[in-house]
Simulated scan of single mutants.
Amino acid sequence: MATPTDRHAPAPNSPGRGTSRARTSAIWIVIAALVTVAVVVIIMNSRVQELEVQSIPAQPESASDWVAGPVVDDPPPSTRRQAPPPAPAASAVPTVAPAPAPALPQTSGPAVDARGYVDSPRCGANETAALIARTDRALVVICESADGTYEYQGVRLSDGASLELDDVRPMPGGFEVRNGGTTYRLSPTELVVISGEDLQSRDPMVEYRTAG
């Protein structure tokens, strides 16, 4: 028969002790889970910050850099567009003097060029000497104009008397010049003067030059 003392003694492994231990274990599990979540959150935040830092572009160092903008290098000289040179100022057209006639090979006689004798007789500025001839008594030049007509100019050496005639005709080996009833015939060998039917003079040529 049981005694009173045995009736009130607690049974081993009572339900109260088991519940307390279960609660303690659950609390530690929750704490460990929270710690793990906190660590994971910290790691994720640190990674996100690293990505944000890497994606931020370089910023200008000062406010003036925002205004000035990026510096662009000068293009190479080959690609630069050069300004066209200024147009020359308009000026009056200068008067061009006629070029001097070219000199011809000289002999012991008077100086000559492409327009005849340097002193006289001499062709005009728009004429050339088709013939330059000289005897002991006279100087003769046959001038040719741009339209193909001829003119005779002669100077007598004894007194400087001059004669100009425009009835000039080329003939084989020379020229024939007429002055009324008087005819002058010039050839490489002589100057013949005929009046009517009479021979007035026949002078041998000392110098005879034709154009070309």
Rank of each mutant, 00 (worst) to 15 (best):
D119A: 13
A33R: 00
P98R: 08
P15W: 01
P10M: 00
A63I: 13
I42Q: 08
V53K: 03
T95L: 06
I31Q: 06
W66P: 00
S120N: 10
T36V: 10
A89P: 04
A130E: 10
Q54S: 14
A83L: 07
E61W: 07
T24C: 01
Y117Q: 02
L131N: 15
A26P: 00
P94K: 02
T19C: 03
T24A: 04
E127Q: 13
G69P: 08
A68C: 01
A133Y: 05
E61T: 13
S25D: 05
A101N: 08
G69W: 13
T95H: 13
A26G: 03
V71D: 03
Q59D: 07
A68E: 14
V112F: 12
H8A: 09
T3Y: 06
V53A: 09
A38K: 01
P86R: 02
A83H: 11
S78N: 00
A130T: 06
P102R: 01
S20K: 12
I56H: 09
A26T: 02
R7G: 05
A33F: 12
A114M: 05
A68K: 10
A63Y: 12
A22S: 14
S64C: 01
I29W: 14
Q54A: 15
A9V: 08
A63C: 06
E52S: 14
A38G: 09
D113P: 07
A63S: 12
T79E: 15
A101W: 15
A133E: 08
Q106R: 05
A68G: 06
V37P: 01
N126C: 00
T128F: 13
A63F: 15
P110V: 03
G69K: 05
P12I: 02
V53W: 02
P75I: 08
G109I: 01
Q49P: 00
C123Y: 03
A58W: 06
Y117R: 02
